[in-house]
């Protein structure tokens, strides 16, 4: 949700769209991210996963489920809606609020891993950091994304990346997830106009 253009709105014409990741590749990418989180956080003992609505939330849940399944590690999962912290509220019609839910562990002193589907300008992550600041004081904040498509507008970098995907600004990255869209896929298509 780092920018309008990479989210799945009303489907643009499928012609000219290129498959980037299929269901199996998404699964593998999440598995790899999960392992990296374990490695880098010494077993993830004080990690909290916070998904950024809409599609960051199921991704965070999948990560948690994977880690519990394969490693027997239970990691608290929550969601962090950033709508009220966006810097473009004046420019767009009002949005429905996503849900913010901090797990019982809280976030004070924890390592919060923000999870989102696509990293683009970095503005969403900036908003998420602001939102986190109002919720408490984590020991560290990290960022996991399924796709990094480049074109950062802020000094923000991901800690865990499923796939680095060089794009032009005219292109649209569409991430579909079974939980929200009925299928798992990441495609790249030429958009009608450059989004923000």
């Amino acid at each position: 949700m780092a920018g309008i253009s990479e989210t799945a709105g009303p489907a643009p014409a499928r012609t000219g769209s290129k498959s980037v990741l299929g269901p199996e590749e998404i699964r593998r990418a999440l598995t790899r991210i999960g392992h990296e989180i374990l490695e880098r956080t010494d077993g993830a003992g004080d990690v909290v996963l916070l998904g950024i609505p809409t599609r960051g939330v199921p991704l965070a849940q999948r990560l948690a489920a994977r880690l519990e399944q394969t490693e027997g590690v239970r990691i608290p999962v929550g969601s962090l809606d950033i709508t009220l912290y966006r810097d473009d509220l004046r420019l767009r019609p009002a949005r429905t609020l996503g849900h913010t839910e901090v797990p019982g562990s809280g976030i004070d002193g924890m390592v919060v891993v923000l999870v989102d589907d696509v990293l683009y300008s970095g503005r969403t992550v900036r908003a998420a950091l602001d939102a986190l600041g109002d919720l408490g004081r984590p020991r560290a904040v990290q960022l996991a994304v399924l796709v990094d498509r480049g074109h950062r507008e802020l000094p923000i970098r991901p800690d865990y990346v499923g796939k680095n995907l060089p794009t032009s600004k005219r292109e649209v990255v569409r991430v579909l997830l079974t939980e929200t869209d009925g299928e798992d896929s990441v495609t790249l298509q030429v958009g009608p106009e450059e989004g923000r």
Partner: peptide
């Protein structure tokens, strides 16, 4: 709007 409405995130803008 400063720019024409592009695709919004899934769901209805309220």
């Amino acid at each position: 709007p400063a720019e024409p409405a592009v695709a919004t995130t899934g769901g209805l803008a309220p």
